[in-house]
Design a protein around this nucleic acid. Structure first.
Lengths: 134, 134
DNA sequence: GTGTTTGCAAACGTTTTGCACAGGT
DNA sequence: ACCTGTGCAAAACGTTTGCAAACAC
């Protein structure tokens, strides 16, 4: 079994992960906290934040930080994209993306009328490549 | 001339816009505030925030909210993408994207070694389409 | 028993807001 | 003169952190 970097297996962490795995939406830390709180009434929001950070480090969840609002978490590690409603801020998975993005106009995705998209690449900048030796 | 929704043309707003147009990076609100402050020492950070919001509404600047950190603004309205360094958080324009994104591996862009990308679509969700009549 | 993880509360950094005044039209 | 936009300060918001107690190992 893969080393996750965890030192202890606590009830809090396992309930948090369980709620995330059963969630089919993309809850914020506070929403997740409220769900976990039903099962563990004395848990604190700070514990949820700390565990989300640890789970993220361990590669067990995705953080959806690029929404310009509260960070949301996704228990689904499969490679997939998201679509956000510009009016009510609802966030859904995009069912399937098949091909060419740039230059192509998606008119409709998963029932949404698509008006735009945002794309950000990640990587190591030239300076950091030098410093780390790639 | 297009109606921008502004009622007054103030010195603050024109200096903010000017600094943004001449900026070749993607400053945060605070960074922009510091630059504007050199020319208008009594301006307040709140005014910068308010004006960025108005300029954004008017479609005169872009907000880069999807970085998971401080919101950055971009005075360049041309359609282009960005790349962020995962180590030092520097943010650059991606020089040119030509074709197929999905399935393709970009190895290198603008001197960066690319390790991943994030993509989010925007649109009107099914419910909001109903309520607004598309 | 040891040292990680927790609950709590305070602190933090970014952004928004209430208010009286300034200034554009 | 009107009323939008400003400066200032406080509040709001999501998130992080310091600490002593709890608990996994």
């Amino acid at each position: 079994m893969k080393n996750t970097g965890f030192q202890r297996q606590t009830r809090q962490r396992s309930v948090i992960l369980d709620e995330l795995r059963r969630a089919h939406d993309h809850p914020t830390a506070r929403e997740l906290y409220e769900r976990v709180q039903i099962r563990l009434p004395r848990i604190s929001l700070g514990t949820v934040y700390r565990n989300l950070e640890r789970l993220h480090e361990a590669g067990m969840i995705r953080k959806l930080e690029y929404a310009g609002q509260e960070t949301r978490v996704d228990g689904d590690l499969e490679h997939h994209y998201h679509i956000r409603c510009t009016r009510c801020h609802r966030l859904d998975d995009v069912p399937e993306i098949t091909s060419d993005l740039v230059g192509q106009r998606f008119e409709e995705l998963g029932g949404y009328r698509v008006t735009g998209h945002r794309l950000e690449f990640q990587g190591l900048c030239p300076d950091c490549r030098n410093e780390t030796g790639e």
